[in-house]
Design a protein around this nucleic acid. Sequence first.
DNA 1: CGATTGTTATAGTAAATATAGAACAGGTCT
DNA 2: AGACCTGTTCTATATTTACTATAACAATCG
Lengths: 126, 126
Amino acid sequence: MVILDPESNIPLYMQLRTQIIESIVRGNLSKGDTLPSVRGLAGDLGINMHTVNKSYHELEAKGIIEIVPKKGAVIIADTEKGPSKKQREDITEELRPAVAEALVHGMKEEDLHQLISEIILIVKEV
Amino acid sequence: MVILDPESNIPLYMQLRTQIIESIVRGNLSKGDTLPSVRGLAGDLGINMHTVNKSYHELEAKGIIEIVPKKGAVIIADTEKGPSKKQREDITEELRPAVAEALVHGMKEEDLHQLISEIILIVKEV
DNA sequence: CGATTGTTATAGTAAATATAGAACAGGTCT
DNA sequence: AGACCTGTTCTATATTTACTATAACAATCG
């Protein structure tokens, strides 16, 4: 279930790719599953085909799905294997500004570990 | 020391505000210190005054500095006190997409804690 | 065959990003 | 007092990004 907020300052294609990632984490989508067609999903969400296409290509760049021309987008992310070196570096750069912001407000290492644990529960919707 | 990359896909004002935050975390800038004037820093960095101004206002919105009209921008972030509720929520939303990405690639809670610890060392430039 | 697939191309609008220059009023400093 | 610097505000413009809208193509699938 994907819900987009057109009023958000976060671009639609980012909202979509994040929600697809979280769906995989929760197990609503699994390795080997095929994502809806770009046209179909765009229609359901009331957005343009190209916006969905952009999300899919970002997911492909992150190594989460594989897009097979004329066929579909298949989930290849292995939620058991662990990230590649590049994937780990990308995640590091994504986390860095927020970690710095946490530190500047006085959060300690243990506080951040606690916050990460909370976020994991939120993403998994436990 | 601030270094901006005009070729980066990260906007200049974001690069600047992140680097100022990290400077505070490292102790290069401390509570009570005054940031350079928007004109002065813009000149040093070879960018426009309004771009620096935007960074400063984002830092003010995050509660890291206080801008006193006609005087200057003073650092008010307390690196000992701990974040306010809103600040903690903002940090949570900033971390969430990257945490989801880590999970989808199979990182476990302990792996993320380890990564966060590494990032803390990077930010502090130990 | 007919429908659907991802891809590509073109086009347009709107917003975000960045620059530029000018002017204002309130501080600072000599 | 006068000169200077401060952040603020305004207008203006160029570029890039985000999003939508159509259309067409070739390949897959039932």
